[in-house]
Design a protein around this nucleic acid. Sequence first.
DNA 1: GCCTGGCACTCTCTAACCAGGAGTGCCAGC
DNA 2: GCTGGCACTCCTGGTTAGAGAGTGCCAGGC
Lengths: 349, 349
Amino acid sequence: MSRKKRQAELSERNRQLLKLLVSQYIEEGQPVGSKTLAERSGLDLSAATIRNIMADLEALGLVHSPHTSAGRVPTIEGYRLFVDSLLTIRPLEPENIEAFQRQLDPAASTTELVSQASEFLSSITHLAGIVTVPYKLASLKMLEFLPLSENRVLAIIVTTDLEVENRIIHVQRSYSQDELQHIANYLNEHFAGQDIASIYHHLLADMKAAREHMDRIMRTAVDMAEKVFSETQTGDEVVVAGQTNLMDVDDLADINKLKELFEVFNEKREILHLMDRTMKAEGIQIYLGQESGYGAFGDCSVVASTYEVDGQTAGVLAVVGPTRMPYDRVIPAVDITAKILGAALNSRK
Amino acid sequence: MSRKKRQAELSERNRQLLKLLVSQYIEEGQPVGSKTLAERSGLDLSAATIRNIMADLEALGLVHSPHTSAGRVPTIEGYRLFVDSLLTIRPLEPENIEAFQRQLDPAASTTELVSQASEFLSSITHLAGIVTVPYKLASLKMLEFLPLSENRVLAIIVTTDLEVENRIIHVQRSYSQDELQHIANYLNEHFAGQDIASIYHHLLADMKAAREHMDRIMRTAVDMAEKVFSETQTGDEVVVAGQTNLMDVDDLADINKLKELFEVFNEKREILHLMDRTMKAEGIQIYLGQESGYGAFGDCSVVASTYEVDGQTAGVLAVVGPTRMPYDRVIPAVDITAKILGAALNSRK
DNA sequence: GCCTGGCACTCTCTAACCAGGAGTGCCAGC
DNA sequence: GCTGGCACTCCTGGTTAGAGAGTGCCAGGC
């Protein structure tokens, strides 16, 4: 009895049938029955045989039928096997890629590039696109302090990627414009051109080593810089585009589910978590349904990839859609977008 | 025949009945019939009499029945009359107001305050809140230029409301850091402390008058300032909160309608249009359904109000929800939020 | 002239029912 | 190991019937 094969090997033929079944289901959204499968397999097998095979696949937990007399639908495990080893990629049309490349303005700021990438992802897949802004990738161009009332100072940080960030920091006493200028000059001399991340670490070393030899102003300079850059570390921004595309997806017709999902997008916390996990991996990651570990992603899956700047992974970009999404298109879309975004960010160094 | 009354006066009794009908419908969401109305009117009239009156109201176009044997539902005109002259306001609980006031951080930046206001609106009404960031309200604290490659200059504008804006402007030739410093000094001397709007107008006058007497550097200073501030004029930012609340509203169950609506929120153009119209009016404006003139607002209505800073209308805030929304709560919510936001912005001058 | 109870009528809503169709599992035979 | 055949299950769509809600109109009363 083939039923005994259990976890054991899956014959090439059965793998092909599973592949067909999953693609078919992804396309039509309907449970697929033995007859259709027999017709389209090109394997010259009868429906009855297919039925036997299906029973095997079901025993392996790869497919399941919603009720006795419906066709089969892939399970999460079925999808897993499909995306991991059965899928044939359908590359994007060069026109689309070129259009995207043309549209990217090399003079634009980082956030703009990121949001263009997110838009592109969502428009090409008709799903939701997510891109995190690059993590501490920029280096410092200029630092500036402005006195505010009551021991507060406004710090303005301009980075080489043309972002301007501002933070209000609280200090021990109030400083005059001149003092602050002095401090800023000192810090600019030392840190301009360095990348933000290493400034933070460099700085700590400096501080401990040289503290004795500094005058009071220099010490406060160091203290202030620490405050400024420790906050800057948290690069928790993420740009979501095309959420509304998900409202067309009939697998996500349940308004309440959809609401939960949208709230996750707004909250951004869970998203960041997931993006963070992706950061640590390599290449394209696919989180199928509940696999992601977030309840609200019920029938949703995520195709994510890191992107690189300067040879280092700088951020993550992803597409969110129903588990029943055209992976053969979405995967290359994510892949190419990651490469192009990385290149665009790189070219501006 | 009372049917002849047409546009003529509406007896006090009939007005009361309309009021009851509308409130009842807003609460229950079901067409309301003569029997319920007779019971709750407190007027000691029989259902049959009510029916006659309803027929009159229908002839006046204030109510209409979805089909022969359903109760009556208010028309847009019916709602109009209701909100304009029948409604009894139910003020917010002081606890809620105080909680909001406590939560507003006077040290926060303008955008933060605005988005807190938007959050508050949406949480108190369980609908979507919209707040525009104040229009040219701030005055200039400091201006700074940084040279970029290829005739581009990064301008950083810090305003007294602690916003930091940056623009990339294109210039005729490239300038050195020193030249730019020079220019910035000149502009800061002249414009620091002035409000952004009047700088733009002031400046134009200056330019025309004094151009002859300036050296070349000063002239370019003026040119650059013009570029910077002309772009700054467009204060087209708007903060939307609680969109997802609208997904619970059963009047908006149609996913496609909802999608259109969400896209309007994302686009922001139409929203800004509407907010702009509100800017020009005074007090609370209510746009019922199609009245707003925007198709996507099909079954939605908007309760909007300007808010003032420094005695001048500075921006608009609004609640968007189904036309069948509890106006008696939403109106005071919008009203009080406008006042509190205005006060909070004012206190930071 | 206004209000009322009564009555017939209309329309929606729900449940129930009944094919028709699709797909299955199992079996016996090749 | 594959196949056709067959009985069975379950969903689907359309139809029907009855209940319920509300109406419009009418005739009669104050």
